[in-house]
Computed example of a mutant assay.
Amino acid sequence: MKRILLALILVVATSAASSALAGGLTMVPEGNRHAEQPKVPGASVRRTRAGRTTFDDKYEKIRDLLASDKKLIAKIKSTAVDYGIDPIHMIGAIVGEHTYNVDAYDRLQTYYVKAAAYAGNSFRFGYGDETIQQFLDRPEFGKCDDFADSYKLWTCREGVWEKSFRGRSVGGTAFPDNRFSAVFFQPFYAGQTFGLGQVNPLTALMLSDMVARNSGYPKLDENKAAAVYDAIMDPDKSLAYMAANIRRSIDDYKSIAGMDISRNPGITATLYNTGGSAQRAAALAARGGLPEENYYGWLVNDKLAELKSLL
């Protein structure tokens, strides 16, 4: 009897998972694929221990911050409308970042104060004595000049970095075997993501055109680093970049993998954590199956009822 019941459950689950939407899209169902939370990376564990806290404590802190700030929730809802996404995706990303990557400040106002501390600072993006503009003037990047859209432009440039510069010596300069964002867009050497949405500068540059269209903020310029930091550290502006990031992930999975992930906040949270939605969508399309949440997305789905109550 148990075997028959299990078989029926599997049939129903498989049918739900493979139900196709109009246009041939497969709707990714709600919930976690993993019965237990995937392993949390050691770096996150060490950071949390160093702060003499726990993941449970950090989760409760960011949850309480969101629950106590109705103005912030209203801004999240309004921004989500601008990008055509459910605000629960933004809640999930904020909770995931502040549970596993950084600590939440006690009040939203603290984020404004911290953002203001960077205003007017004189710094630039680059590596060593080479500015980002000088680096992009190298002939290897010439093929990227055909792209007008900021997402395609910076995706192309990131690809050139991976293929031609990462871990190589080129033109007398030895480049580190590290990500483009870490090498050229980390002038403070103190973490690569900032603000309420924990967006890194390269991601902001990629999403600049979408944010300009949907939110009306000025387009970003890689030669004006202070303006980039203002965009990702000011809470109001950072919400726009967060929403654009999530919108991009949803669109990438639709257009590349034929998957609609808009009803699974754990999957969008996973992609917010990992980045590389286009590459991951392509890998999924090649191997088949459904996307799976990581440790970060698993928490969001596991706490989904509680997180939805914040809205």
Rank of each mutant, 00 (worst) to 15 (best):
A204T: 14
F184S: 01
G197P: 01
Y217S: 12
D177C: 08
V170G: 06
K152D: 08
F185P: 07
N178Q: 15
V211S: 00
W161Y: 07
T155I: 11
D149N: 13
D177V: 10
Y151L: 12
R168C: 06
G191V: 00
E222G: 06
T173G: 06
N178V: 14
E158Y: 13
N223H: 13
D177N: 11
N223Q: 10
E162T: 12
F188I: 07
S208R: 00
A174M: 14
W161G: 04
F188E: 07
Q192G: 06
W154I: 06
Q198R: 07
S208H: 02
R168W: 05
S150W: 05
P187C: 12
R179Y: 15
F185K: 05
F184K: 08
L205E: 08
Q192D: 10
A212S: 04
L207H: 00
F165K: 06
G191Q: 09
W161I: 02
M210K: 05
P176R: 09
L196Q: 01
L202D: 04
S215A: 11
K152A: 11
L202I: 09
F147C: 01
Y189K: 12
V183A: 07
A148M: 11
M206F: 12
R166Q: 09
E158C: 15
G191D: 09
S208T: 05
Y189F: 12
S215L: 03
L207W: 01
G195H: 01
N178E: 14
P187I: 01
S215P: 01
E222H: 10
S208P: 00
A182S: 15
L220W: 02
S164I: 08
Y189N: 12
G195L: 00
L196W: 03
F194V: 02
T203I: 14
T193M: 04
D221C: 03
R213K: 08
T193W: 11
A190C: 12
T193C: 09
L196D: 05
S181L: 07
M206A: 15
V183D: 09
T193K: 05
A182R: 12
F165Q: 02
S164H: 15
F175H: 05
N178T: 13
W161P: 01
T155S: 13
L202H: 09
R213L: 11
D177I: 06
N223K: 13
E158P: 09
G172V: 10
V199C: 06
F185N: 02
V211M: 02
G216H: 08
S181D: 15
M206G: 13
P176I: 10
R166W: 00
A212T: 07
A148P: 02
T203K: 13
E158D: 15
R168S: 00
F175G: 00
S181A: 15
A174W: 12
F184A: 03
A204I: 02
L202V: 03
V170R: 14
